[in-house]
Design a protein around this nucleic acid. Structure first.
Length: 911
RNA sequence: GGGCGGUUAGCUCAGCUGGUCAGAGCGCCUCGCUUACACCGAGGAAGUCACAGGUUCGAGUCCUGUACCGCCCACCA
């Protein structure tokens, strides 16, 4: 592609859809997304900057959160690319096993089918068909957002590379003693028909009932219930009575001391179980006596283990009562509860009931009440892995931003429990474990399984593979290295691992980041990333979490269609503070769109303002320093200030701060004052072409710099506008691979001087507006200009005339001279050590005299108040002796300045 | 039951290592179609920085406590 000719006319209005798609195509055609971008200013020897994207769930479409993810990551990638580093931004998709099945279940249900009716093979085929369509939708969305992904390295957590990595990872963990299979209590979701991890159980507050139930104590002599002795337990889940294998009391509880060691009969199942003593019992709660159901409650399970109690499963996969439930067999758990309560009442053993506030564990996915059940499943031993992860953050090899999440991280990893990775689902990575008829387990990294049982040598033909699949986060946990070719020692893995930044939402710190860290450290021996950057979540305008069920999900494509991808990206980044959730509404999007429009028009002005002496296709020149006026030097200096500030904010990952700096610099400085000052000089026929050229090249320089600075945030519009300004011959064709700007020199003198004049113009405008003077009216203005500002003031006089509607503009050396020449009518403006009188001798301001006096009196009152405060401070010995000299100096200067202002205002008001 | 975060203009939020830090956007009010931009320009009003103490010469900015709001973790059945 050839260089776009500079000076190309820009369409009159900013319509993002006109160029965003085309620009993305140009980037793709130029092959600039790959680490060693073709024809770019990339230093191939430099340390690569790598972001492996958190793969979105392949369940449908992207939401605003994803767009924010991509925007922030792409910002970092583009910045690094412009710094000349090789960059890898690797895109991906997650198969999202349980989430995807949940979605597909609903789809097939609408088609009159079900998981069961289809069977495993057909269901999986249907799933592949489904994700094939969602995949295209999602990738298209990612492109619309503008992510500069290396599409050639697109990965999917279910592709062969990932599958291989999963098998090898698990085999290795197994051989290292970190994966084991055992029967344990797992969180069972009856709706999803699978176990889920602790993290997927959401404690939900609910008002339940606490029932007190009388159990009869057996007479040791007869072995039959003793009519005089009973023990009353409290329970919220009467249906689990069927699985009780003990009653527990506190060892120090005098009420029950005699009963410890006795036997009680569990109703309905007529099971005789012991009364045990265990300090886990809270004497204050309920009746102080606790029924123990080891197969259906975590605490009871632990208690059962301690006391060697039987564990009887009374609820099946669908949460129906099992055959062990006697007469209640086959009933749903809640029907069984109701029937049991009725029957207890009938027997007179339901002693009391009262409402009870409690937390019910519900399935994150289906919202079903989780049922703890005994299952033989695979677990990952997390303690040693967590130790290593903690070590990585404690030594600083990986840092977490914002830092306050470190505490959360520490707490979770220190109290971590083993991770149940078996899922009784179909869509996902099959657990690579095979069992022989004798129950020996063989784990193999070969997709076909082991050649023979590892324990007894039975041939492969007699082995059957575990029907379960892995928790989807197991494959996600390998993401930073499985995507790069691990376990093979590929060039990508060697070059790009460990990765640079892991940017993700703080809601999946445990689900994902912790697991990547644990698995990464163990399997690769290195921390998978240097920095964890946690973003806040996007909420709706009311602060509610976006969810499909609430129907408040904002489709990023809608926002892009309406305002452009750049506006969406800017809006998402602008209001964001790391780790803090963000409300998102249309006003933010509009504000961002307006900003883009502003930039568009500023660039349009610059293109149109090119002096005739410069050819359309001119090669870029820097302005001739000898021909620069104060306005030009001010623009350059303020631009340099912006570069520094942006660099500073980027270094701190303060992206919201970065956009704030650019918004102000571009809108409030470059456009409001820079362009306005320049207009005058560009139109000034009294100046030679050299001056006009210098001014224009100054505008081009600054615009060029701002476009570069803004490119990581608003890639499309900046790329489009950059093509319209002249470039140096050695520049690349595209901004995306152009160099990040170096901070130029600041000129504090000129910033001060031009700043003072800007303030004077503001003061004059203010006085005129307050006095309700016709805005268009040109009035004479007399100004007292101190010597130190004289040269700058003179140079900028034409601009002041235009911006302050001053005609004529007369300069006086001192305040006294001003009075003498101009008399005392007109509006007074006191701005620093500049003093002006507006409309002297015209009578234009006469009618406004009272308003003017009012304004001046208010100014005086303010100044006097500040002056009094400043003096009080300086009079305080404690302040002058203890505060740092620089601060005291500053206070003195401020006092002098205020005193001067007060004096001027007073003398003015006295007439 | 622990832990964390928040409480700053009507609304949404910035304010880093204490000393022009009282700010921005939107909204509101007054003007203005001055050929870059009405997706605009000029000007303006508006906050005892949740509350109470404390440290300090000096505190939205540090400490303690309180009150609300939100989040995370947690085996009182």
């Amino acid at each position: 592609m050839t260089r776009t000719s500079s000076g190309a006319a820009l369409p009159k209005s900013y319509v993002p859809s006109d160029f965003e798609g085309e620009i993305y195509e140009r980037w793709l055609a130029a092959d600039v997304f790959a680490p060693d971008a073709a024809g770019a200013t990339v230093d191939r020897a430099a340390t690569p900057f790598v972001i492996i994207q958190p793969p979105p769930n392949i369940t449908g479409s992207l939401h605003l959160g994803h767009a924010q993810r991509t925007a922030v990551e792409d910002l970092m990638i583009r910045h690094a690319r412009m710094l000349g580093r090789p960059t890898l931004f690797l895109p991906g998709l997650d198969h999202a096993s349980i989430a995807a099945q949940f979605v597909l279940d609903r789809i097939v249900a609408a088609e009159g089918e079900s998981r069961e009716s289809l069977g495993r093979e057909r269901y999986l085929a249907r799933m592949r068909e489904f994700v094939e369509t969602t995949r295209e939708v999602m990738l298209a969305q990612q492109r619309r957002v503008g992510g500069s992904f290396d599409w050639g390295r697109l990965r999917f957590t279910m592709d062969e590379m990932s599958s291989h990595a999963v098998r090898v990872a698990f085999s290795r963990l197994y051989r290292d003693g970190l994966a084991y299979r055992t029967e344990a209590l797992v969180n069972w979701c009856p709706g999803c028909r699978t176990s889920v991890s602790d993290l997927e159980v959401i404690p939900t507050p609910e008002t339940g009932t606490l029932w007190s139930v009388r159990y009869h104590v057996l007479d040791p002599a007869t072995g039959e219930p003793d009519p005089d002795r009973s023990i009353t337990i409290a329970t919220t889940r009467p249906e689990t009575i069927l699985g009780d294998t003990a009653v527990a009391v506190h060892p120090d509880d005098p009420r029950y001391r005699d009963l410890v060691g006795a036997t009680v009969r569990i109703p309905f199942v007529e099971r005789d179980v012991p009364v045990i003593a265990d300090s886990i019992v809270d004497r204050e709660f309920g009746t102080g006596a606790l029924k123990i159901t080891p197969a259906h409650d975590q605490a009871d399970y632990d208690t059962g283990k301690r006391h060697g109690l039987a564990m009887i499963t009374v609820l099946d996969d669908e949460a129906r009562v099992t055959a062990d439930g006697g007469a209640y067999a086959g009933l749903d758990r809640y029907e069984a509860r109701a029937r049991i309560l009725t029957d207890l009442r009938a027997r007179g053993d339901l002693v009391a009931e009262r409402p009870h506030e409690m937390l019910i564990g519900r399935c994150q996915r289906s919202n079903d009440v989780i049922e703890p059940r005994l299952k033989t499943q695979w677990f990952i031993r997390t303690n040693p892995l967590a130790e290593a992860a903690l070590e990585a953050t404690r030594t600083g090899r990986t840092r977490i931003l914002p830092p306050r999440f470190v505490k959360v991280w520490e707490h979770w990893l220190t109290n971590i429990r083993d991770w149940n990775v078996s899922r009784q689902l179909w869509w996902g990575h099959r657990i690579p474990a095979w069992y022989c008829p004798d129950g020996h387990a063989s784990v193999s990294e070969h997709s076909g399984g082991p050649p023979a049982c590892e324990v007894c040598g039975r041939p492969a033909s007699e082995l059957t593979q575990d029907p379960d699949i892995f928790d989807t986060w197991f494959s996600s946990g390998l993401w930073p290295f499985s995507t790069l070719g691990w376990p093979e020692d590929t060039p990508d893995y060697r070059r790009f691992y460990p990765t640079s930044v892991m940017e993700t939402g703080h809601d999946i710190l445990f689900f994902w980041v912790a697991r990547m860290m644990m698995l990464g450290l163990h399997l690769t021996g290195r921390e998978p990333f240097h920095t964890v950057y946690l973003s806040g979540l996007i909420r709706d305008a009311q602060g509610q979490r976006m969810s499909k069920t609430k129907g408040n999900v904002v489709d990023p494509l809608g926002a892009i269609d309406e305002s452009g991808a750049d506006a969406l990206r800017f809006a998402l980044i602008h209001g964001a503070t790391p780790g803090v959730d963000q409300r998102f509404g249309t006003q933010k999007l509009e504000n961002a769109r307006n900003f883009a429009n502003k930039l568009w028009n500023a660039a349009r002005y610059v293109a149109g303002a090119r002096p005739a002496s410069i050819p359309v296709d001119a090669v870029r020149q820097h302005p001739n320093p000898a021909r620069l006026g104060p306005a030009e030097r001010w623009i350059a200096s303020r631009t340099a200030a912006a570069v520094r500030a942006v660099d500073g904010s980027l270094g701190e990952f303060a992206f919201g701060e970065m956009t704030r700096i650019l918004y102000d610099a571009i809108w409030s400085e470059y456009c409001d004052w820079g362009l306005e000052l320049a207009k005058v000089r560009l139109a000034d026929e009294s100046l030679g072409p050299d001056e006009r050229e210098a001014t224009w090249w100054t505008l081009v320089d600054a615009l060029d710099t701002y476009l570069r600075l803004l490119h990581p945030v608003m890639p499309f519009i900046t790329e489009a506008l950059w093509a319209t300004i002249p470039h140096r011959a050695d520049e690349p064709d595209l901004l995306i691979v152009a160099r990040w700007p170096a901070a130029g020199e600041r000129d504090s003198q000129v910033e001060l001087e031009v700043g003072a004049i800007v303030e004077l113009v503001r003061g004059i405008r203010n006085a005129r507006a307050e006095a309700k003077i016709e805005p268009g009216a040109r009035l004479p203005v007399d100004v007292a200009v101190p010597a130190r500002l004289a040269a700058t003031f003179a140079a900028l006089s034409p601009a002041i005339e235009r911006m302050a509607r001053a005609m004529p503009l007369r300069v006086h050396p001192t305040s006294a001279a001003l009075r003498k020449a101009a008399g005392s009518d007109g509006l007074a403006v006191i701005s620093g050590d500049l003093e002006a009188l507006v409309g002297t001798g015209t009578g234009a301001a006469d009618g406004a005299a009272r308003a003017d006096v009012g304004r001046l009196e208010k100014e005086l009152a303010d100044a006097e108040r500040f002056l009094a405060a400043a003096r009080a401070r300086l009079a305080d010995k404690a302040f002058t002796s203890k505060a740092p000299p620089a601060v005291v100096e500053g206070a003195r200067a401020r006092e002098a300045e205020l005193a001067e202002t007060v004096a001027r205002l007073r003398s003015r008001l006295r007439r």
